[in-house]
Design a binder for these strands. Structure first.
Lengths: 164, 164
DNA sequence: ATAATTAGTTGATACAAACAACTATTTTGT
DNA sequence: ACAAAATAGTTGTTTGTATCAACTAATTAT
């Protein structure tokens, strides 16, 4: 399993040397790393998994499934901030596992709509179930206020970064 | 530049389907992705960089530099949750750029202490400076309370995940 | 009608992860 | 004291995923 921790120490270092009390993304990458580790462990404990997919594959598959409108590869590349060829290869791998299908647009023959198959939804559900159970345990001890603030700060940082 | 977004959608999906109001790591990976993008852009804008290093290299280099005691490769592998061979190869790359040195322990000849060179510290400072400036902008509009809560939630999640 | 743009594809290259097998050294247990 | 176990590091192999550049085919704009 390939796991990059790019973000972990990149973001982890922000502010280590700050003189004043400021926002620290110090442990955020490490947090995701730990959560990912647990998620992976729980996933592997499941014997009856339909299909094993990597986090990248899962992320893309899930992202496709949650879009209200039809999406094409280009949309997913934009959405996920990756090169179109990266998306293409992820789609290839998902199609090989029969989790998505490329369906040609009859009007614009350059486009392939991405459709999640029945099996695709099944696999998503399996992974989502694991994630839900895990998060239930993880959030024990946090108040609703904590959670709300956390989400708000995340949105704030994301928005600020996006305009930079 | 290699950028993995493993965590982004893995964690991004946690809770999308939750029925009740719960902790959502929904956008956390995306947040780090955006922050990383800005960081990279700012880094590339710097003409007078001593040496370009990847985020992984930077993370390891910085982590070594902040340890109070001498560290060996094994320590860094444990600390960063990676296989020792992954660390070894990152150290190789850092040593090639003359940012760290392996120094043999005279007592236990199995061990190599990792020492950050002068150039190593110089490179760290350059990257840290960029990160600091960026975070100053990003945190505008957040209260101290927001920041504290954010950090506390991150610690909570990390701790909970670690014991799972 | 030609030019520019768009969507997708392919090939080349790079980075970094895991795992397994190995060496050399040190520590442990009897 | 010596054999066995543990430890630190190394190397080779495989896998996954990213970028970039060059390309085709189809569509849109001038």
């Amino acid at each position: 399993m390939f796991v990059s921790t790019n973000y972990i120490y990149l973001c982890g270092v922000l502010n280590k040397r700050m003189k004043m009390q400021v926002l620290t993304l110090n442990n955020t990458g490490r947090m995701l790393h730990e959560v990912y580790r647990v998620f992976k462990k729980l996933s592997e404990g499941q014997q009856h998994m339909e299909t094993y997919i990597t986090p990248e594959q899962f992320g893309l598959l899930h992202a496709i499934s949650t879009k209200a409108e039809e999406v094409i590869q280009k949309d997913m590349a934009d959405m996920m901030g990756k090169d179109k060829s990266a998306i293409l290869r992820l789609i290839d791998s998902l199609e090989e596992k029969e989790l998505v299908k490329r369906v040609a647009d009859s009007k614009d023959r350059r486009k392939n709509y991405l459709m999640v198959t029945k099996l695709g939804y099944k696999v998503i559900d399996q992974y989502v179930k694991i994630a839900e159970d895990m998060m239930m345990v993880i959030q024990e001890g946090l108040s609703q206020d904590d959670i709300d603030t956390f989400q708000r700060v995340v949105s704030h940082i994301t928005a600020k970064a996006k305009e930079m």
